[in-house]
Design a protein around this nucleic acid. Sequence first.
DNA 1: GTCTATAGACCGATAGAC
DNA 2: GTCTATCGGTCTATAGAC
Lengths: 209, 209
Amino acid sequence: MSVPVPAPTMAKPSFKQQMLRAREDAIILAVNRLLAEKGFDAMTVDEVAAEVGIAKASLYKHFPSKEDLAAAAMVHVMGRAQTFVQALPADAAPLDQLKAVARWMMETQLAGQMPSLPSQNSSLRATLMNQSAYMDGLMTVSDQLGAWIEAAQAQGVLNPKLPAIAVLYTLYARACDPVLEFLKANGQYTDTQIVELVLATCFDGLGAR
Amino acid sequence: MSVPVPAPTMAKPSFKQQMLRAREDAIILAVNRLLAEKGFDAMTVDEVAAEVGIAKASLYKHFPSKEDLAAAAMVHVMGRAQTFVQALPADAAPLDQLKAVARWMMETQLAGQMPSLPSQNSSLRATLMNQSAYMDGLMTVSDQLGAWIEAAQAQGVLNPKLPAIAVLYTLYARACDPVLEFLKANGQYTDTQIVELVLATCFDGLGAR
DNA sequence: GTCTATAGACCGATAGAC
DNA sequence: GTCTATCGGTCTATAGAC
C-alpha cells in the first residue's frame, strides 16, 4: 500500500530555510551599504556582523571569506542593474536608454548603494570573476549597452568617431564618479540637480554647443 | 681680535643637509610611485623603506607617520601642478589652458605618477588640510582654473549654463578617471590616443556634435 | 535528548609606531 | 628589531528549538 509522500526535490522551503535566506539578504544589504560608504579595505567583518546584528561566526556560515561577502554584494547590484535594464521600455530611443542607465548608476551611487571595490586587489578580482552570476550579468548588460551604443551611433546622435568600448567604459565610470560626491559635499545642489548636471556634462561635454 | 665667522642664517646648506634633502626627495618619489600604483591602504611603510633602500626607522626620522608620507607626496604633485599651470603661455585661449591642464593630469596618471588617496579617510584628510603648502597650491591652482573657466564661458566656448564649480570638479576628476586604466588594460590604444579620446569625451561629450 | 546556531573568546599574521 | 593594535578567520561552550 502506498501513501502520498512529498517529493523531496519539490519541497517548499522550510521555515528555517526562509530564515536563512532572509538573513542572507540582510547581510548583503549591510555589506552593500558599508562597501559604498567606506570601501573594501576599510570595511571590517566585525562591522558587518554588528550591522546585521549577528555573530561573526554566523557570517562565515553563509560566506567563506570577506572577498565572498564583497562578491555577493557585487552580484546583488549587478542583478539590480540587469533588472533595471530589462525593465526599460523596448521602444525608446537608444540614446535615451543609455542616459537612463547612466542616471540609474549615479542615483544608486548618491543613495549610498553602489559598492565600489579597489580594482587593483587581485584576490578580490579572482573571487569576482569566479562568480558566474556576476560575470553573466556583466556580459548581458554590456551586450545590451553595446547594442544601444551602436544603434545611437548609426542614428548619428552619438559621436560615431568614439570607439564603442570607450563609450561603454565612460558610462560604467559614472558608477564611481567622484564629481558626484564633491558636488554633494559642496552642498548647494540637490541630488537630482547633481545627477542632471553630471549627465549633461557626460553627454554634451563641457564645451558650448 | 676677530675672525671671519659664517653667518648662521645665510650659511649654505651643509653636506649633511644636502644628503638629508636628497634622501627626502627619494622618499617622496617612491611614495608617489607606490601611492599611484596601489593606493594608500595597500601601500606599506616597509615597502617604501625597501623601495628607497633605507631602514624603516630612518623613514620615521623624516616623516612622523604614514599619513605624513602620503601628504608629502600630495604636496609634491601639487607643486608640480602649480609649476605646470604657471608655465603655460599667458596669452593662450582660456579653453586651451583648461584642456592643457586636463591633459597633464591624465598623462600624469597614465605615467603612474598621480598619487590617489581615499577621500573618505578622515585622518588622512586632516593631515592634508594641515599642510599649508598643499592647501595654498590647491587654492592657487583652483583660482587660476576658475578664472579660465569664467573667461571661457564669457567667450561662449564653454557651456555657460554649467556652474564653474562643477566644471572645476570635472577637470580635477580627470586625475583619477578609471576610464584611462580600463582603456589601457584593453590594450588597443596608445597612451596618447587614450588621453585624446578621454579629453574629447570630456569637452565634447558622448553625443554627436 | 539531540542537534544546530550563536556569542564571544581566541589565534596568527601583519603593519604601524618608536 | 621590538611592541602593540587590529583584523581576518576559527573554536568551543551554551542556549534554545524540535
